[in-house]
Amino acid sequence: MLATVKLKELLDGKGFDEISEVYANNLPKELEENTDKTIVLLTESNPSIEMSGNNTFFGKTERVEIQIFYKADIDYDIEAFEVELLRFLTSEHYSIIDMREHSIDPDTLQLTAVFFVALDKII
């Protein structure tokens, strides 16, 4: 299963109240300008093979970029939500490998956040 699909299922299963919808790999065209929902987009980011030996490999690191597009009318504490999200991911054995600064989408004026996570697997 693709790393993005696996993470989508994990986030959907957790049921964060702050997240309206989670998408893996691409965002539907009709949602690109939406500002009424908090949307999470998951995309693959630089996977790699690990634990090489005897002309083969025995591990894989799956990396996923998590982009959060916050709804325009925020009615919850973003920092508290992000801490809860990151703690949940680490409890599911993901490593937080990078966090980018919050920014404003120039087209929709939505606040956005970007995180990169990794999951090491033995194959």
Rank of each mutant, 00 (worst) to 15 (best):
V22E: 00
D107H: 03
V40Q: 00
L27G: 05
A113G: 06
G13Y: 03
F116N: 15
S103V: 09
D75Q: 02
L27H: 00
L11F: 01
V22R: 06
Y23W: 10
V22Y: 02
T61R: 15
Y76C: 00
S20N: 15
I104N: 06
A80E: 11
T90L: 11
E44C: 07
F58V: 00
S103K: 11
K60G: 05
F69Y: 13
P47Y: 02
M1I: 14
D98G: 12
V83R: 14
D73R: 07
N26H: 10
F115C: 04
K14E: 12
L41G: 01
L111F: 03
E9D: 15
I123H: 12
A80Y: 07
L31E: 07
D107S: 12
R100W: 08
G15L: 08
E79L: 13
P47T: 10
E92K: 14
V64D: 07
E82H: 08
V114P: 00
V22W: 03
L41N: 00
L10W: 04
G53L: 01
K121F: 10
I49M: 12
D120Q: 11
E44F: 07
T56P: 02
F58I: 01
V40Y: 03
N46P: 08
F115E: 01
S20M: 09
M1R: 11
Q110A: 10
L42H: 05
T112L: 05
V5A: 09
E33A: 13
L86Q: 13
G53V: 04
E65H: 12
Q110K: 12
E79R: 14
I39G: 02
E30C: 08
L2K: 15
I104V: 13
Y70C: 02
G53T: 01
F69N: 07
G59M: 06
F69A: 08
D105Y: 02
E65P: 05
L85E: 05
N46Q: 15
N54I: 08
E101F: 04
R87L: 13
A24H: 06
A3M: 08
G53E: 04
D12A: 08
I19S: 09
F57T: 11
I49D: 09
I96F: 09
T4Y: 06
E21I: 05
D105P: 06
E82L: 09
D73P: 03
R87G: 11
K37Y: 09
I122Q: 12
K60I: 04
E18D: 05
A118P: 05
R63Y: 05
L7E: 06
L10Y: 02
A3R: 05
F116P: 08
Q110N: 14
S48Q: 10
S45E: 14
D98F: 13
E30H: 13
F116G: 08
E65A: 15
I78Y: 04
L11E: 01
D107F: 09
D120E: 13
E33I: 04
G13L: 02
V64L: 10
L41I: 01
F57M: 09
K6Q: 15
L31A: 07
K29D: 14
E62Q: 12
E82P: 09
I39T: 04
K6Y: 15
F69P: 00
M1T: 13
E82C: 07
L119V: 02
A3K: 10
G59H: 03
T38C: 01
L27A: 05
L11M: 02
